[in-house]
Write a protein that binds this DNA or RNA. Structure first.
Lengths: 134, 134
DNA sequence: CCGGATCCAGAGGGATACTG
DNA sequence: CAGTATCCCTCTGGATCCGG
């Protein structure tokens, strides 16, 4: 019998690729960037430090779970800094780091491409949905 | 009673934001870019046209469902072109479009940032996971 | 005030079988 | 060869309650 069935082989290759993806820097960045709330958080912090509750109000669509989770992830990646002031009700401030700031131009580039080409994309979609072949 | 409970208000704001996201060009692009297979497909087609089965072999981790779905989405967005040759076994070729090519520099920029800064991120993560506060 | 823990629904992704 | 249709399962994201 063969060492591996076709299905097993495919599965292994998929696993290998997933393992590769987990290592791939580009994909890690993409994963971060495309996170639903990351862009908002970074944008909110671009102007200066903010308190948790402040962010929560600004990014009003996010549940605290998601906001906290997003902030933790960004903090872990060194993209923003968390400062706890042990006053009586605790006070927590978040601030974008130098590393985090280097990400802003990338976001701008993406935004720029998107704004420049989105109409072409929309036209292509409209044509496709009409059933145009050429 | 109040017009809206706090929960209802939050829900509405979340819906509004989701609606906004669906319209936001930047996020649409991010959604495309961060799709698990898009990068691979675009990269595979950067050198020239390819047949479906060829792509399937190159991107061996993807199921046909995912490959087809990815190709369809990219075709719909006008990022690549699909050519059907009605020979006896049907032949389908995929080719990147001019619009699709303008995306490659963005991918490169992302890749570049990632490769340049990933070590800082990894160090930050290691420090964070060790429990370093500062 | 900040956020951890738990539970739950819905979307995304995959295996398999079938069609032109 | 190049898909389409179906079922299933994991994984993300959100609500809610609880603790420091």
């Amino acid at each position: 019998m063969a060492t591996l069935s076709a299905a097993q082989l495919r599965e292994r290759q998929r696993d290998e690729y997933n393992a590769f993806l987990a290592q791939c820097p580009g994909h890690q960045l993409l994963a971060t960037l495309s996170d639903k709330w990351v862009t908002l958080v970074l944008a909110a912090l671009a102007d200066g430090p903010r308190r948790y509750s402040d962010l929560s109000r600004t990014i009003s669509g996010a549940s605290q779970k998601m906001l906290t989770q997003t902030l933790r992830k960004l903090e872990r990646d060194g993209l923003l800094a968390r400062t706890v002031t042990p006053s009586v009700p605790v006070r927590v401030d978040y601030e974008i780091t130098a590393l985090g700031r280097t990400l802003l131009p990338i976001q701008q580039a993406i935004k720029h491409w998107a704004e420049t080409h989105i109409e072409q994309v929309h036209r292509a979609r409209a044509a496709y949905d009409r059933g145009d072949a050429g």
